[in-house]
Design a protein around this nucleic acid. Structure first.
Lengths: 290, 290
DNA sequence: CAAGTAATTTTCACTCAGTGAAAACTTTAT
DNA sequence: ATAAAGTTTTCACTGAGTGAAAATTACTTG
């Protein structure tokens, strides 16, 4: 029996014991249905059966069960299944109950109002950036394609880089050496060396720049959020169009406000001023993953 | 064996054959875990076992499986489980792939820009309103508590009332006669008679008012979105503070823009101008549910 | 609009996946 | 330290979940 999960868990989680055991097959299959449908492509019963390599009666029952809770619904016209309303409702619950968001939101609002630019909150998951919150700046909206719930590569975003810089150096080296670098714009970092160098610099100054590395027109500054014991909890950023944010290194006022907000959130999470980050700078750890 | 689903399906769905059969027990249990956690309260393994009346080994395996796909995660500090990142990612997929949202979004943006007020998109599910989209007006934000993914009572919101007015009269009567009316504000409708009367009036004029019936300070106008065969697909609204929207009946310009947008979306969904709604006005159907 | 085709829904019998009880192990309280 | 409470793992049993195939329904197409 094999297992895939598209969104995550390419390999067993490192710290905690390996899962894979203690899994319920039927539930696993149901969740595979959901992750499959999460690509946005509506599918018929048979298409799902084929893709999951399950008999159509099994797929039918999985879908019936999921549908009874509104996790999927069937479009009457096309006969295709797609994700249902319950996914929206769950996401709202997640956001309301997530401690990081509860704590960060008021400060993020303040930061947005103070800078008038778009503010993001994100976490690092499986070495990828996932946006938790996006507060639009007061200028024309819609130019920035970021979305809450979206998953982005870490090496080409300010948020990603700053979180990598405060993560386990061992794991980051591993990641940096095997990720597929894509040059989205002229400023995208596309090699292990430049990325690790950049992470070192970010760690030294305590925040990151994004000079249009993912979208040429979007520049940003990003800072880490730390919790108890200096553990990385997430990151936040202030982003704007190149026209207003360039050169991004000279947005002194924005940088100060960003850092103050990041420190404020970190404190509320239980990080004590002066306590060092949980991990050493990446340049100080040269041991190889064995 | 019993079954509950908190969010929905209090009784078997009326049109389609009854489910309950063709359900996979293990999947059903997993989804009950998620709906339980959707109240935002993080829970320990044992709390969940007790609440679901399952052995802790079963609950443990359910949680392990859910966690391996990031549907739940365990807070290391408290040892409690709460919803995980995957819920956010699924919700994003839902929004991106939902035909109604794809089609409506550009027109909603236009409406927001034209009115400068907050615009909502919602659907009716199990006689309740679920918000799909919220576009903030250009004025100070944060005054309106509505949230994407939130579920609201239908009788006390403009969106809910307008959708009821275009739904199956049989089902609406049934609903109106048994719902628990709560007086949130002085203008809340709190009896079957006033509600049905209001629905009749709404049907006649084609759109609804909300005179602060849920939150005194929030007034709104709402219009239905119809699809092929005049079936109700959802509704949209323009909302603002009483200070700007009062008296709401005299927001002629906003009403015209709202109706034009609703018709535009309906057309794109396949509703042909002139085609009547799928259901008759509530006052013309006096037959009882047998 | 009938005959044919494809997809969905239901039945059914088999058997192994999912189950709870209880044991082993961890963590937290005292 | 020891005890108490919670979590993870083992284990043997059996009925829940399974796929094959039949029945039904929804689409094509001549």
């Amino acid at each position: 029996m094999f297992m895939q999960s598209l969104t995550l868990s390419e390999k067993a989680t490192p710290m905690t014991q390996n899962n894979e055991r203690y899994q319920i097959r039927a539930v696993d299959r149901a969740l595979r249905v959901l992750t499959l449908l999460a690509d946005g492509e509506p599918r018929t019963l048979m298409e799902l059966s084929d893709a999951l390599e399950l008999s159509n009666s099994t797929t039918f029952r999985l879908l019936s069960t999921l549908a009874s809770y509104n996790f999927v619904q069937r479009d009457e016209a096309s006969g295709r299944y797609h994700l249902g309303l319950a996914t929206l409702e769950l996401a709202r619950s997640f956001q309301l109950s997530n401690p990081l968001q509860q704590i960060a939101l008021p400060l993020l609002r303040q930061l947005r109002d103070d800078t008038a630019e778009t503010v993001h909150l994100a976490v690092l998951d499986q070495m990828e950036v996932v946006y938790l919150e996006k507060l639009h700046g007061l200028h024309a909206v819609g130019l920035m394609s970021s979305q809450v719930g979206a998953r982005l590569l870490a090496y080409c975003t300010g948020l990603g880089k700053v979180m990598l810089a405060f993560s386990d150096p061992q794991a980051v080296r591993e990641y940096a050496s095997q990720v597929a670098y894509v040059r989205f714009t002229p400023t995208t970092l596309t090699s292990v060396e430049t990325l690790l160098g950049e992470l070192h610099a970010i760690r030294a100054q305590g925040y990151a720049f994004d000079r249009g590395e993912r979208e040429s027109e979007v520049h940003c500054i990003a800072a880490p959020i730390l919790g108890p014991n200096g553990r990385l909890e997430g990151a936040l950023s202030v982003s704007g169009p190149a026209s207003r944010m360039h050169p991004v290194e000279e947005q002194g006022e924005h940088i100060q406000k960003l850092l103050a907000t990041a420190r404020g959130i970190s404190n509320l999470l239980g990080h004590r001023a002066g306590q060092p980050p949980a991990y050493a700078d990446i340049s100080f750890n040269h041991s190889q993953a064995r």
